[in-house]
Design a protein around this nucleic acid. Structure first.
Length: 474
DNA sequence: TGAAATGTTGGGGCG
DNA sequence: ACGCCCCAACATTTC
């Protein structure tokens, strides 16, 4: 009788799980195992909020496994060592895992595969990165042609989504007692009260269903409005595979077909495009792993950044004096999530107003975001900084005041995250420094006392950045 | 998935 | 009546 391990990494789901399916097909017993790898949990690019979501997600997965006659084994340590020991103890002849693309994950899996029977299975994306290539066999570096080819490939239909197995047969108890370092999921700092994410695939499916039947049809108009619920909000679940990309894409196609009118159809297509952006950046990280450390266009690594630690602290703590930036940075540190539009605004502000290396911002986002994903986060930052694939031209600089007026027209978002501005009149909400002294008194928001002065003047900052970028251009 | 600077046009006030 | 100027509104170019 054959035992396979299902090595869980970022596929915390029983539905539509290709790795689990392969393990069940190829063995009589399946042993689900998660390894708490200090190389990951103690990285500079990880933070409490994402870890807490992961631990809570594992507990949920454990319950789902127990309902199917199985259990979750959680090991702590180096994956190569732990898996080798576990193979010895259980006599497992196969380890199945969903392939991952980050340089760390690929190095790790390569080491495991040198000595152990590791089989990697697709599932992180709808199509594996090797399957979406230009006619000459090289990878795309521009989004639009990538998405065109991607869309010509057969989409996942609703009935191709693999249902959760009814039973996952556990291996017979091992002859030796469990090793002492086989411990349960770390009792993590519970999710801070303000982090609004309930882990698990049931929650993910519910949210997808709700989104698919309503919000998606106004996505085109509302997705950029930071004061509305216009986005899917599914990123934390996608990040840990509590929702499979195939499930998301199948839902998008369904919505496209069921759309009542043309604008609704366009809206659903726009959301599908966002899912394709995710696949694009995963493909970029796979084919160009060096982007993790360097700009995709290396000439831009010659930029003379200002990198002022005080300015960086003002940015991280949400006290730049620009309300839209500060509101977003507080939303991030309080909830572990930020609206996509404000991700662009705050990123542009760090790079092009403060002239701070985009990697500083990339790291901070990874430390704060529950949905922090190396590929998408890196791609987004390089895009904003104008140093990446298909990037915004370097001279495309967001004006934080105009962006604020456009995408938070009533100031609702600002007031939600910056209570000190709650009573500031609409006229001044995007530019509180323009309040006359009497209005400052009335609204209980005195500049310099209740709210900080501007850390930089946008107009001057813009000129400085254009000069710095021009410098390396020539 | 930008914004600022510069150019063009045309209506209206006014001498 | 007419030309001049101002400037809003829009278009184009530039960063």
């Amino acid at each position: 009788m054959k035992t396979a391990m299902w090595w869980i990494r970022r596929d915390l789901r029983l539905n539509d799980n290709q790795a689990l399916t392969v393990a069940l097909q190829q063995a009589d017993y399946v042993l689900p195992v998660f390894i708490v790898d200090p190389g990951l949990t103690q990285s500079d690019y990880v933070g409490d909020k994402r870890l807490a979501f992961l631990w809570a997600g594992l507990r949920r997965l454990e319950a789902d496994l127990q309902a199917r006659g199985s259990r979750l084994l959680v090991l702590h340590g180096d994956p190569v060592t732990e898996l080798a020991a576990l193979v010895r103890e259980t006599g497992a002849t196969l380890i199945v895992a969903e392939a991952d693309v980050s340089p760390y994950a690929r190095r790790r899996d390569q080491q495991v595969a040198e000595t152990l029977p590791l089989q990697l299975v697709s599932g992180l994306t709808v199509f594996p990165p090797d399957a979406v290539l230009k006619a000459d066999g090289t990878p795309y570096t521009v989004f639009t042609p990538f998405s065109r080819t991607w869309k010509t490939m057969p989409p996942p239909s609703p009935d191709s989504i693999i249902p959760a197995p009814e039973r996952i047969p556990p291996p017979p108890p091992p002859p030796t007692p469990p090793r002492p370092h086989t411990r349960p999921v770390p009792v993590a700092p519970a999710l801070p009260g303000t982090v609004p994410f309930k882990p698990g695939e049931a929650e993910a499916r519910q949210r997808l269903e709700r989104f698919k039947n309503g919000i998606i049809f106004q996505y085109g108009d509302n997705r950029n409005r930071v004061d509305l619920t216009g986005t899917s909000g599914l990123s934390p679940w996608l990040r840990f595979g509590m929702l499979s990309p195939r499930q998301a894409v199948a839902a998008a196609w369904q919505a496209i077909e069921l759309a009542p009118d043309e604008p609704a159809r366009k809206s659903a297509e726009t959301w599908l495009n966002e899912l394709i952006w995710r696949e694009f950046y995963i493909s970029i990280l796979y084919h160009f792993p060096q982007v993790r450390r360097r700009s995709f266009r290396p000439e831009y690594d010659g930029i003379e950044w200002d990198n002022d630690p005080a300015a960086f602290a003002a940015w991280t703590e949400g006290r730049t004096g620009y309300p839209i930036v500060d509101a977003a940075m507080r939303q991030l540190s309080q909830t572990g999530w930020m609206h996509n539009r404000t991700r662009m605004i705050t990123a542009s502000f760090l790079v092009k107003d403060l002239l701070i290396d985009w990697r500083w911002g990339e790291r901070w986002f990874m430390q704060q975001l529950v949905d922090g994903d190396p590929a998408a986060n890196n791609g987004g930052w390089q895009w904003t900084a104008g140093v990446g694939t298909d990037a915004a031209p370097y001279f495309r600089i967001f004006n934080p005041i105009l962006q604020s007026k456009k995408f938070d027209p009533t100031g609702t978002y600002i007031r939600r995250w910056l209570p000190e501005l709650a009573a500031v009149p609409k006229k001044h909400i995007h530019t509180p420094w323009t309040m006359p002294a009497s209005v400052q008194q009335q609204s209980g928001c005195v500049m310099g006392r209740h709210y900080p002065p501007l850390v930089v003047d946008h107009k001057q900052a813009r000129e400085r950045t254009l000069a710095a970028y021009r410098q390396v251009k020539k």
